[in-house]
Design a binder for these strands. Structure first.
Lengths: 191, 191
DNA sequence: GTCTATACCCGGATAGAC
DNA sequence: GTCTATCCGGGTATAGAC
C-alpha cells in the first residue's frame, strides 16, 4: 500500500521523562519517534525529512513543534542524560555497579549515546543541573574530584571505543572494566 | 587578486611519513593540504570541494589521485595513527610520559584526532599492523593486557571529552591524568 | 497543524573534451 | 592532469494557503 514508512515505537521510555515535562504531547510523540529512528538508522541518517516521514507528515510541519533541528536534538540529549543519570544513581555506591550501569545504558542506546557525546553540549537548551547529575554517583564513591572525573572519562572512553568497534574481537572488556575500576577504587589519596 | 583561497601548509609533517611512502608526490600535496584544511575548519567542513578549492583545482580533478573521499580520509588517518604511535613510542617506558604524549598529540591535532576516532577504522585501507602500534608502548609498562587496554581507553576518554569541551572550565585535568595513571601503574595484578 | 511550493545551501561522483 | 558540464542525492528552513 503506498503508505508512509512507519517506525515501531516502543512506548515507555518517554513516559517517565520528568525532565521533558515541559514538552507537549505532540512533542513527546515526535521525540519518541525520532529516538526510535535514531536507534534504527544511526545518527548520520537522522534528518528532519526522515523524522517527518516516520511520523507520516511533511518536514515543514515539524517547525510547528520545534524551532529548529537543534532544538529537537537537544530534547533527545536531555532525555538521554536524564536516563543515564538515573541508571547510575540507581546503581548505588558500588563503583563496579555504576560502571556497569553506564556501559549498559550506552550499549542499549549506542546511537543516542553518540548523539549525546560527539558534539559540544547545547547547554543553553538543557535543563539546569542536568549535566552535573552524571558526576554525582561517582563522587559518592571516589572522593577525590580529579579521580572521579578520570573514572568517568575512563567509562566514556571504554563505551565510545566499544560502540565504534575499535576493540579487537578477542578483547575481554569485562576484565578491562573490572580491573580499571578496581584500580580507581584502590587509588591512594594524593600525598 | 581574485585568486582562489589558499591554505597555509606547514611542511614537515608529511616528510617523515614512512607509512605513506606509497603515495605519489601529488598525493602527498593533496593530503598535506587536506590536513591543514581539516585543522583550520574542522571535520564537519571537510569536503572535496573545499579541498579542491584550497589546492586551486576543481573537485573532479581529485578523482585522478584518490578513488573516493574515503580513500583520502584513510590516508589522513594513517598519517595520524603513525604520528601518534611514534610519539608514544618516543615517550619511553614511563606511563605519565606516554599519557602526556597521547594528550599532546590529540590537542595539537584535535580535528585529525576526531577524524581518526569518531568512526569505525577503515582497516582494509590502512597499512597492516599500524593500528596495533598504538598499544605497544602501553604494553611495555602495563603487563596485564586488559589493564593496558583500559589505560588506553582512559586516555581516549580524557582527550575526546577535552576536545569536545565537556569538562567544566575549572577542571584540573593534569591532576586527573596524573592520579589515574598512577592508579593504573599501581594496580595489583589480578588475583 | 498540516499542506504545497519554494529557496537556498550543500555533498559525492561521472563523462568526455582538451 | 585538469577542465566543463552534468547528474544524482541530500539537507534546513520559510511563506502562504487551507
Amino acid at each position: 500500500m503506498g503508505g508512509h514508512e512507519r517506525v515501531i515505537v516502543s512506548l515507555g521510555f518517554a513516559a517517565m521523562a520528568g525532565s521533558v515535562s515541559e514538552l507537549s504531547a505532540r512533542q513527546i510523540e515526535i521525540v519518541t519517534t525520532t529516538r526510535a529512528l535514531l536507534a534504527r538508522d544511526g545518527v548520520e541518517a537522522l534528518s528532519l525529512g526522515a523524522v517527518a516521514k516516520a511520523l507520516g507528515i511533511k518536514p515543514p510541519s515539524l517547525y510547528k513543534h520545534f524551532a529548529s533541528r537543534g532544538d529537537l536534538e537537544a530534547s533527545l540529549i536531555a532525555i538521554g542524560l536524564a536516563e543515564l543519570a538515573d541508571a547510575m544513581e540507581a546503581a548505588g555506591e558500588d563503583l563496579q555497579a555504576i560502571g556497569l550501569a553506564y556501559r549498559t545504558f550506552a550499549l542499549a542506546n549506542p546511537e543516542l549515546y553518540r548523539l549525546m557525546t560527539s558534539a559540544p553540549l547545547p547547554r543553553e537548551k538543557l535543563p539546569e543541573g542536568l549535566e552535573a547529575r552524571i558526576l554525582v554517583p561517582v563522587h559518592k564513591v571516589i572522593s577525590d574530584p580529579h579521580l572521579a572525573r578520570a573514572a568517568l572519562a575512563f567509562a566514556h572512553g571504554m563505551v565510545s571505543l566499544e560502540i565504534a568497534q575499535r576493540f579487537p574481537p578477542w578483547s575481554k572488556l569485562e576484565k578491562s572494566w573490572a580491573r580499571a575500576l578496581d584500580a580507581f577504587a584502590a587509588a591512594k589519596p594524593p600525598g
